[in-house]
Amino acid sequence: MNVHEKKYTEEHEWIELSEDGKTGTIGVSVYAAKSLGDVVFVELPALDAEVTAGDSMGAVESVKSASDILTPVSGKIIEANNVLEEKPGTINKSPEGEGWIARIQVKDGGELENLMSMDEYAKFTAE
């Protein structure tokens, strides 16, 4: 079991820390993927980009609308999920698994404390 709980933002991104707590995997939630509809294009973040929590780091585009993806935490982008370039629909199939978007070197783990737990997020989206 992962020692770090998956956390969610109000903008429907999720982040899950690695066991050592140094890197985080970021994606969009099942809820977000459903409300977007079929994803036709994913704009991935640039490698080595330094980002601040809340910055736009890419976009997910469904047929007619492009939604910015905001990074939940500050840090440096160390990996992007290139599978999404060829198969953007992976986000619809597995938004919180194979459809992850990027990995980030987390600058300040404390930033995660402001985010919602899975339960809190479930309540938030039920509103």
């Binding site: 903008e11 736009s56 047929v63 007619k64 609308s65 492009a66 939604s67 910015d68 905001l70």
Partner: peptide
């Protein structure tokens, strides 16, 4: 297909285009 159309297949004609940007749920 995206947009708003007039006429039926295969002679549909496009009357309006649609394109949206979302940032923090601001459209």
């Amino acid at each position: 297909n995206p947009g708003v159309w007039i006429g039926s297949s295969p002679d549909e004609r496009k009357l309006a285009s649609v394109g949206v940007h979302l940032r923090r749920h601001v459209a």
